[in-house]
């Protein structure tokens, strides 16, 4: 009886606390998502031969989905994200883990200053970070290209083969520090007595790092990995900015750029919605997978 009324109180409080988010979510997320979903099954047809006879919206089933999923250049964009996922993300994570382990090992003088420096890029807006790197890639003004050239190492960051790596570099630059901080925090949470006993048993610093510390921060690692891959799917600023300075970044460089291209193109707005839905589903499935993996690893904690 008393427990019942307590439960009711709890429920009422829960909904009051949730109300602002539920309302805002409904108006500014759910309704727009619904609109976009409906749109993804529609197309607009003009009439009158030249198009001036008015237009009507028709239901086209999955035609928009078929159109975007059979478009070779859009699929190439997904493939680029896959490449980013298997090249940039691991490299960035290795660097971030390495930095975090070094900081955690306590052998770095001025740790706080270095950590702060590493985090700075994350506070710079993506568009601006891309603009800055664009300047560093442009052979005509980049001190890096000029410097390497003077050393007899001609490089072209904007060549057709290299430009994907240049995009990867911008992403890494923005996120290394962020990941490092998270991983460092996870490392700091490892009970010191555990490490001390390993040390007493004669394990070296590198061995402790690899066989004791790393397994203990798998959970944090998985989270960082997941966000990095999701970030790659939605990568937009870097390719857009680079496309103004090189002819090697097309309008479908990443899936999110394809969404923009379709949304601003002629008569393909609804395909943009369809592709966005695909992106959302892919991201959602990925996130669920990650949560599953994390729960499993978390259980062994």
């Amino acid at each position: 009886m008393r427990a019942n009324s307590a439960l009711r109180r709890e429920k009422r409080a829960a909904w009051w606390l949730l109300a602002p988010v539920v309302i805002a979510f409904g108006v500014f997320q759910a309704v727009p998502i619904l609109l976009a979903t409906v749109q993804s099954f529609e197309a607009t047809k003009v009439a009158g031969g030249l198009g001036v006879g008015g237009a009507r919206t028709v239901f086209v089933g999955i035609a928009n989905y078929r159109a975007v999923l059979t478009d070779g250049s859009i699929l190439e964009g997904f493939f680029r994200v896959f490449l980013i996922g298997i090249i940039q993300v691991p490299v960035m994570m290795i660097i971030a883990v390495g930095m975090a382990l070094l900081f955690d090992a306590g052998i770095i003088w001025g740790r706080k200053y270095f950590q702060t420096a590493a985090f700075l890029p994350h506070s710079i807006p993506g568009v601006i970070a891309a603009l800055v790197w664009a300047g560093l890639y442009l052979p005509q003004i980049s001190p890096i290209v000029k410097g390497l050239g003077a050393l007899g190492l001609p490089v072209n960051f904007l060549g057709s083969g290299a430009v994907l790596f240049s995009v990867m570099n911008i992403m890494s630059w923005e996120w290394i520090g962020y990941n490092m901080i998270i991983l460092y925090a996870a490392l700091q949470a490892i009970p010191r007595d555990l490490l001390e006993s390993a040390r007493v048993e004669g394990a070296g610093g590198i061995r402790i790092a690899l066989s004791i510390k790393l397994p203990l921060i798998v959970s944090a690692l998985v989270i960082c990995l997941a966000f990095s891959i999701l970030g790659a799917l939605q990568q937009f600023a870097a390719p857009v900015i680079l496309s103004t300075i090189t002819t090697n970044v097309g309008s479908n460089f990443t899936p999110n750029l394809s969404v923009f291209t379709l949304a601003t193109g002629n008569g393909v707005q609804q395909q943009a919605s369809a592709l966005a839905m695909v992106l959302a589903v892919v991201s959602f499935v990925l996130s669920l997978l990650v949560l599953r993996v994390r729960d499993r690893t978390g259980a062994t904690r």
Binding site: T44, V46, G51, G54, A55, T57, G267, V268, Q269, Q270
Partner: peptide, 11 residues
């Protein structure tokens, strides 16, 4: 064309 009439429809 298609894009905009679609929008106004949705709207």
């Amino acid at each position: 064309m298609k894009r905009r009439s679609k929008k106004s429809h949705a709207l």
